[in-house]
Write a protein that binds this DNA or RNA. Structure first.
Length: 329
DNA sequence: ATGGTTTTTACTGCGTC
DNA sequence: GACGCGGTAAAAACCAT
């Protein structure tokens, strides 16, 4: 009935503007205060905008910075700003201000019955309150996921636009009800994986699951599911996309990168690669290129950064060189 | 579930520094 | 002798059926 959960919510200002009035004595003056709970020292945490107790972690005042709705992005401009979602401590914020209950009885605070007008008003308020609350639970979910995406993305050194893409994908997954039966972790990991590939800076499933709390198999499964349901257009990973990263991790010259790309392109034209793992191909190309340019690298080193066995590198790079020769004939 | 393909693991031999 | 490299066989992982 009321599955209109994601009603068109304007980026409404959170209804607690009264933090302007400095309320209690624990102010941001940074004086040595003591915690009411354990009498420990109280410090201000500027990054999260909180005043917390050093000893017990009690948050005395939170939200000296209001970053409430800023992570709801509806267009690309807002999206540019939404990536500051991170801090997990803000999870507490929602419960604090928003989950309100409105009694079902049509009585006022003194127990008197309300007039018809008032009754109708309360009816409307209940309805909207409920709507906001369900919206809120989804957003809490979203928030956690976004935090997770952000964490993984920075662990993998992925640029901001990937995080944004990942967030967008996640939002779509959420609004299409793809979540039930799947972990937030898993889906956000899958979204990150997809976003990285779509942005042309792919990370292998191994790398992804390294920083995720989810098994590789589950990531793969969830990714397949999500990309099918949302019909994401993500082309099979191009080995060339791995080259720059591997090359720079090995501190190889630009020339080597060029050679590696050439090798891959040749191989591609001759259809040498099909069914072979793109990562392996890329690793082999990087290694072969380093040989051709007389830069010192070992198979072991390449295998290390690419997370590919040396055997595979050997096999692939033979094939690459063969393809190169065939081209000259 | 099964069979075919690819990748990994583990081990061995060879040449060089 | 350690190291980089190449090859091989068997195991494991993966994929389509």
């Amino acid at each position: 009935m009321s599955e209109n959960a994601y009603t068109r919510a304007r980026s409404k200002r959170t209804p607690r503007e009264k933090r302007d009035e400095r309320t209690d004595e624990s102010e941001t003056t940074g004086d040595a205060l003591t915690c009411p709970e354990c009498a420990g020292n109280v410090v201000t945490d500027d990054e999260h905008g909180e005043t917390v107790c050093e000893e017990c972690g009690l948050v005395i005042t939170a939200d000296s910075v209001d970053r409430g709705p800023e992570w709801r992005a509806f267009d690309s401009r807002e999206k540019d700003q939404k990536s500051r979602v991170g801090a997990p401590t803000t999870n507490t914020m929602h419960d604090k201000g928003l989950s309100t209950n409105i009694d079902w009885r049509d009585k006022d605070a003194y127990g008197n019955s309300l007039g018809t007008r008032q009754r109708q008003k309360m009816q409307r308020l209940r309805k909207w309150n409920e709507r906001f609350r369900t919206r809120d639970s989804k957003e809490r979910n979203l928030k956690q996921a976004l935090g997770e995406i952000d964490r993984m993305a920075s662990a993998l050194g992925l640029p901001d636009n990937v995080r944004e893409t990942a967030s967008v994908i996640y939002r779509r997954a959420l609004s299409e009800d793809l979540l039930p039966g799947r972990s937030i972790e898993g889906v956000s990991t899958a979204c990150t994986y997809a976003a990285a590939r779509m942005a042309g800076v792919p990370r292998s499933l191994d790398e992804i699951s390294e920083v995720s709390r989810v098994e590789k198999s589950e990531v793969a499964r969830t990714y397949r599911y999500v990309s099918r349901e949302l019909s994401l257009e993500v082309k099979p990973a191009d080995p060339e996309q791995y080259v720059p990263r591997f090359a720079s991790e090995l501190e190889l010259s630009d020339e080597s990168k060029m050679r590696a790309r050439q090798l891959l392109q040749n191989a591609k034209e001759q259809g040498v690669h099909s069914g072979k793992s793109p990562v392996g191909l890329a690793a082999a190309a990087v290694y072969a290129a380093s040989l051709l340019t007389n830069e010192k690298t070992t198979q072991a080193a390449v295998s290390e950064v690419a997370d590919i066995s040396e055997v595979t590198i050997r096999n692939r790079y033979h094939e690459l060189l063969e393809a190169e020769e065939q081209l000259l004939v």
